[in-house]
């Protein structure tokens, strides 16, 4: 285990990218930070800039307008970076996969480390996914 991977075991800082989503996953991600679920007890913090982040959460289907921005964010991020695709749309495109503006699921655009399926995934599922990811490294 390299030093950088060792650092990723604790206190993951998370940047949230909401693609062309229906907002449900966004709200459930925010919900993780509120008193009932309280993700911050694992040292997980939502940050405002990708340059501070260890984890990139991507939810929603990615449309043609989002695609370039997602790629740019991925390139700007310090590596190693963990990418998590959240929700049915993030994993596969979901119900919007046949849409006219759909530009491919997240894993066609950037490499993805973990998938958290569900429409929307429950906060418990999101927490379980991220904690498993942190333990894996």
């Amino acid at each position: 285990m390299g030093f950088k991977d060792y650092c990723l075991r604790k206190s993951l800082w998370v940047f949230h990218f909401g693609g062309a989503s229906c907002n449900n996953c966004d709200i459930e991600i925010l919900d993780c930070l509120t008193p009932r679920y309280d993700l911050e007890r694992f040292g997980i913090l939502l940050v405002g800039s990708i340059r501070h982040a260890d984890v990139l959460l991507v939810n929603g289907s990615i449309n043609r307008r989002d695609k370039d921005r997602l790629l740019e964010l991925y390139h700007q991020a310090p590596k190693p970076l963990l990418v998590v695709a959240i929700g049915a749309c993030g994993c596969t495109g979901g119900i919007f996969a046949e849409g006219i503006t759909f530009a491919g699921p997240v894993d066609k655009i950037i490499p993805v480390d973990a998938y958290i399926p569900g429409c929307p995934p429950k906060p418990e599922a999101i927490i379980a996914g991220i904690v498993k990811l942190a333990g894996k490294k």
Binding site: A20, S21, S61, N63, D66, R69, F96, G99
Partner: peptide, 14 residues
Amino acid sequence: TGYNHRGIEKLSES
């Protein structure tokens, strides 16, 4: 806007 466009009205017809 446009970052969120999913083409729902068109999808609905299918």
